[in-house]
Deep mutational scan, measured.
Amino acid sequence: KFGRVHERAEGPAKILAIGTATPFHWVDQSSYPDYYFRVTNSDHLVDLKEKFRRICNRTMISKRHMFLTEEILQKNPNLCSHNEPSFDVRQDILVSEIPKLGKEAVLMAIDEWAQPKSKITHLVFCTRSGVDMPGADYQLIKLLGLSPSVQRVMMYQQGCFAGGTMLRLAKDLAENNKGARVLVVCAESSAIGFRGPSEDHPDNLIAQALFGDGAAALIIGSDPKMGLERPIFEIVTTAQTFVPNGDCHLALHLREMGLTFHCTKDVPPTIAKNVESCLIKAFEPLGISDWNSIFWILHPGGNAIVDQVESTLGLEPNKLQATRNILREYGNLSSACVLFILDEIRKKSGREGLKTSGDGLDLGVLLSFGPGLTIETVVLR
């Protein structure tokens, strides 16, 4: 008597548009150690500064975009301390800036989509910054002038794996609601975790050397309108798992001094060791076991992770080039990073006149991972 209210779509979910945005301000990685130790009044920690310089040199990052300028840091000195309470200051900045950054990426996506924004039916927003109620999803709806009846899902504090999570959720929403057009937004800022150095917490140096700011937005829907919408990728399958006891290797915690970062040297080999089982589960039903026969979007948690995944799986050097390019130009953008790589690989395919948006290949994989050593596996066509 009370059956399904919403009719299912006929076809699989497809990515119809991609937009990205970054803050205008950026830092050069080669000179960042001098800048970082100067603005945090830590130049007296000579040995720690040299250690940080070595870490920065190993990241293979060229530059990173950041909202925090020297002027902002001078006005808010607690942000430059390692342990002073600064959460309220971070909140005041990020509750406002995260939706604005997301808006810039959304406008780029809508411009490519070339359809009225009134056709957006759902919003899925993800960030690890600016936790608030009502959330960044609500603020973004107002900034864009979208209908208050847009169906919203707000996900805070997920971390680097969440780019894949957003695709998984959007696929379910698009395929189970005929005519749905799902706006996916990942907006991230390193301002939540920026803090001064400490000899007692070397993990913090890794975070300060890796993370950048950026937002990515996608429009996802099934059954694209012929002649009006141009699909870029099809989302074939999605899956999530985590490595048992992985939280002892990688975890982040909200504290009075901001978001703290805990990471062990076992993260790269542990991820590399567990990736292939995810690939087998995803691609065995499709008859694929040659990992060089697919295109790759791999989250660059750090250069060591990229190198070890490449080595463990025997990947050809060009397979992870898009990942390395984004890491070099932006650093680790947390949940937004794989979506930047997705954009990079389709643009490169277009520039080179390849037959598909995925490096000329039919199928590919998007792998994202993060806290708890959670792994998201997304098969794309």
Rank of each mutant, 00 (worst) to 15 (best):
V5I: 11
V5A: 12
E7Y: 00
E7R: 08
R8Y: 05
R8S: 05
R8I: 03
A9C: 10
A9R: 09
E10Y: 08
E10R: 10
P12N: 01
P12M: 06
P12T: 04
A13K: 00
A13G: 02
A13Y: 00
K14A: 15
K14D: 08
K14R: 05
L16K: 01
L16R: 02
A17F: 07
A17T: 04
A17D: 06
A17Y: 10
I18M: 04
I18H: 15
G19E: 04
T20A: 08
T20M: 00
T22F: 10
P23W: 02
P23D: 03
H25A: 05
D28Y: 03
D28V: 03
S30M: 09
S31L: 04
D34Y: 00
D34T: 10
Y35W: 08
Y35C: 11
F37L: 08
V39G: 12
N41F: 03
S42P: 02
S42I: 08
H44S: 02
V46Q: 02
D47C: 10
K49F: 14
E50K: 11
R53I: 11
C56Y: 12
R58K: 12
T59R: 02
M60P: 02
I61C: 08
K63P: 01
R64F: 02
R64G: 08
H65L: 07
M66Y: 01
F67S: 07
F67N: 01
F67A: 12
L68W: 03
T69Y: 11
E71S: 09
E71D: 07
L73C: 09
K75L: 02
C80S: 11
C80N: 00
C80T: 11
N83Y: 11
N83R: 08
E84W: 06
E84K: 06
S86A: 12
S86L: 06
S86H: 02
F87E: 15
V89T: 11
Q91W: 01
D92T: 07
D92F: 02
I93H: 10
I93T: 08
L94F: 11
I98D: 03
K100A: 10
K100I: 02
K100P: 03
L101D: 02
G102R: 13
A105D: 03
V106M: 07
L107G: 08
M108D: 06
A109P: 04
A109L: 00
A109G: 09
I110M: 14
D111N: 13
D111C: 01
E112Y: 05
A114T: 10
Q115C: 03
P116T: 04
K117W: 12
K117M: 08
K119V: 09
K119R: 10
H122Q: 06
L123Y: 09
V124C: 09
C126A: 07
T127A: 07
T127I: 12
R128E: 05
R128D: 11
S129I: 02
D132N: 07
A136T: 10
Q139G: 09
Q139D: 07
L140I: 11
L143D: 14
L143Y: 04
L144S: 08
L146F: 00
L146S: 00
P148R: 06
P148V: 04
R230G: 08
P231H: 10
I232W: 06
F233L: 10
E234H: 00
E234W: 11
E234Y: 01
E234N: 05
E234K: 04
I235Q: 02
I235H: 01
I235A: 06
T238C: 12
A239T: 09
A239P: 03
T241A: 10
T241S: 12
F242Y: 13
F242T: 15
N245P: 14
N245E: 12
N245L: 12
G246A: 14
D247L: 10
C248F: 05
H249I: 04
A251C: 09
L252I: 02
L252G: 15
H253S: 14
H253L: 13
L254Y: 11
R255V: 05
R255M: 09
L259E: 15
L259I: 09
T260K: 07
F261C: 01
F261N: 15
H262V: 13
H262I: 01
H262R: 09
T264I: 05
T264E: 14
K265L: 08
V267G: 09
P268W: 15
P269K: 12
P269Y: 13
T270K: 09
I271T: 12
K273L: 03
E276R: 07
S277P: 04
S277E: 13
C278K: 02
C278F: 09
C278V: 11
L279C: 01
K281R: 08
K281S: 06
A282T: 05
A282M: 00
A282K: 00
F283L: 11
F283R: 01
P285A: 01
P285W: 14
P285N: 15
L286G: 07
L286Q: 11
L286R: 06
G287L: 00
S289I: 01
S289V: 08
S289Y: 15
S289N: 03
S289W: 05
D290Q: 02
D290T: 00
N292W: 06
N292F: 01
S293C: 00
W296R: 10
I297Q: 04
L298S: 10
H299D: 11
P300Y: 12
P300H: 12
N303Y: 14
A304L: 04
A304T: 09
A304S: 05
I305F: 11
I305V: 10
V306G: 08
V306S: 11
V309K: 14
E310D: 04
E310S: 01
T312Q: 05
T312W: 07
L313C: 06
L313V: 02
G314S: 05
L315K: 10
L315H: 03
E316G: 05
E316W: 00
N318Y: 12
N318M: 15
N318C: 09
N318P: 03
K319E: 10
L320W: 02
L320P: 00
Q321G: 03
Q321P: 07
T323R: 01
T323I: 06
R324L: 02
N325R: 11
R328T: 04
Y330S: 06
G331Y: 01
N332H: 02
N332K: 10
L333Q: 00
S335L: 01
A336C: 14
A336G: 05
C337V: 09
L339W: 12
L339V: 12
F340Y: 10
F340C: 09
I341T: 08
E344P: 02
R346P: 00
G350W: 01
L354V: 04
L354T: 05
K355C: 03
K355E: 01
G358C: 04
D359C: 09
G360N: 14
L361K: 14
D362F: 00
G364S: 03
G364W: 00
V365F: 08
L366D: 14
L367R: 15
L367W: 12
L367V: 02
S368R: 05
S368A: 12
G372W: 07
G372Q: 13
L373V: 08
L373Y: 14
T374H: 12
E376M: 00
T377Q: 15
V379D: 15
L380D: 15
